[in-house]
């Protein structure tokens, strides 16, 4: 681990980017690959345990007349089922567990990232792109598996004149290839930007407070700003998890139901 060098580069006393740094907690090396347990992986495991506990204790009794907790679990499930039904249709039912896992994992990761001293798993492009690339490959495989060669007709919108084909097909391919990029960058950028802003305004509060005198009073302004930002970030965290899951269903729909 190049622990010391990274410290030198990124740890300029609570800089706004330091919160994104990966800090190894326990070094693990497998065949020369660095698989260390880091703050990031610890949070992932934490999310996993949290979601499991949420589901397990919510559905432990599975009563006909649900309590508040069970209603939350069922509501979330219903929400995902509705999303899948609306965007894919009855053929999409088998993807509900995947979409549900995706949505709840990203949702918990985003919201947990707003806790003080926390690490936001989804603020790393490596993580969001891993998701997006997996979904991308899955879409292609499902498309070919379900429709065979006919699925490549997806790149040719119906009613294209033959002389436009050399132009339209590359455009459609580029459009298709840019899906994992937009999907991953959107989530990553939203999480990162919000957290940097929060950190910068928090830095203003601290430095104004330290400056003393009249500046401490002025420090109330960024504090109020931060409070408002925090509420906004909470909404962004939820909306981005929703958008990620929604676009995944939209992309899956293109592979499952050939529109044209």
């Amino acid at each position: 681990m190049s622990k010391t060098t990274t410290k030198k580069v990124y740890s300029d006393v609570a800089g706004p980017l330091e919160q994104f740094d990966i800090k190894p907690l326990y070094d693990i090396n497998v065949a020369g690959y660095d698989l260390s347990l880091t703050n990031s992986s610890a949070w992932m495991i934490g999310i996993l345990l949290f979601v499991w506990a949420f589901m397990f204790f919510g559905m432990r009794k599975a009563e006909l007349v649900p309590g508040r907790w069970q209603s939350m679990v069922e509501g979330l499930h219903e929400f995902v089922v509705g999303m899948v039904d609306e965007n894919i249709g009855p053929k999409g039912r088998s993807f509900v567990p995947f979409i549900f896992s995706l949505f709840i994992f990203i949702l918990v990761a985003n919201v947990a990232g707003l806790l003080p001293y926390s690490f936001t798993v989804t603020s790393h492009i490596a993580v969001t792109f891993a998701f997006a690339a997996f979904i991308f490959v899955m879409c292609i495989l499902i498309g070919i598996f379900r429709h065979g060669f006919a699925w490549f007709g997806f790149f040719l919108p119906p009613g294209t004149p033959w002389y436009l084909m050399p132009l339209i097909i590359p455009i459609e391919i580029i459009s298709f290839l840019s899906r994992p990029i937009t999907l991953s960058v959107r989530l990553f950028a939203n999480m990162t930007a919000g957290h940097i802003l929060l950190k910068i305004f928090a830095g203003f509060v601290v430095s104004l407070g330290v400056a003393g005198g009249i500046w401490s009073v002025v420090g109330v302004l960024p504090l109020a700003m931060n409070t408002a930002l925090y509420a906004l970030e909470l909404i962004v965290a939820i909306v981005q998890a929703y958008v990620f899951a929604l676009l995944t269903t939209v992309y899956l729909n293109d592979s499952i139901n050939l529109e044209h």
Partner: peptide, 18 residues
């Protein structure tokens, strides 16, 4: 707005990479 800008940028990036 950011979503729309991102669509454009991603298209250009993928095209240029290809």
């Amino acid at each position: 707005g950011t979503r729309l800008a991102l669509e454009l940028v991603a298209g250009i990036l993928v095209g240029a990479a290809l």
